[in-house]
């Protein structure tokens, strides 16, 4: 059985997109922290605004993407708002995609 790492989870999350912006949640800077312990994965993430109409869908997408990884046994996605998201948190790759 391959060992799962936080980097592995992060790579998987690069395939979860903010549907409105078309940018993945990692490059958008929404993922704050990932911990992996004995197949139990905790993801701390934020949203570009607490009033994001697709918040539930994005959080569910993150949860589904992590759950699909081997050997994950449980997933805990936590939304955090402090500090609030700002555009400075977008990765250089993400900025390029947004046309900066």
């Amino acid at each position: 059985m391959t060992e799962l790492s936080a980097d592995g989870v992060r790579s998987a999350l690069r395939f979860v997109f903010d549907p409105e912006l078309g940018l993945n949640v990692v490059d958008l800077g929404l993922i704050r922290d990932i911990t992996v312990q004995d197949g139990y994965v905790t993801v701390q993430m934020t949203l570009s605004t607490p009033a994001c109409p697709l918040a539930g869908t994005i959080v569910q997408g993150v949860e589904q993407a992590v759950r699909a990884l081997e050997p994950v046994t449980a997933v805990d996605v936590q939304l955090v708002w402090d500090p609030p998201w700002s555009p400075e948190q977008i990765s250089p790759e993400g900025r390029k995609q947004l046309g900066w």
Binding site: A55, Q60, E63, L79
Partner: peptide, 13 residues
């Protein structure tokens, strides 16, 4: 498990 604190109402139901 999803902990969605602070997400009240923010879903297209």
């Amino acid at each position: 498990m999803i902990a969605a604190q602070g997400l009240a109402g923010a879903r297209p139901k």
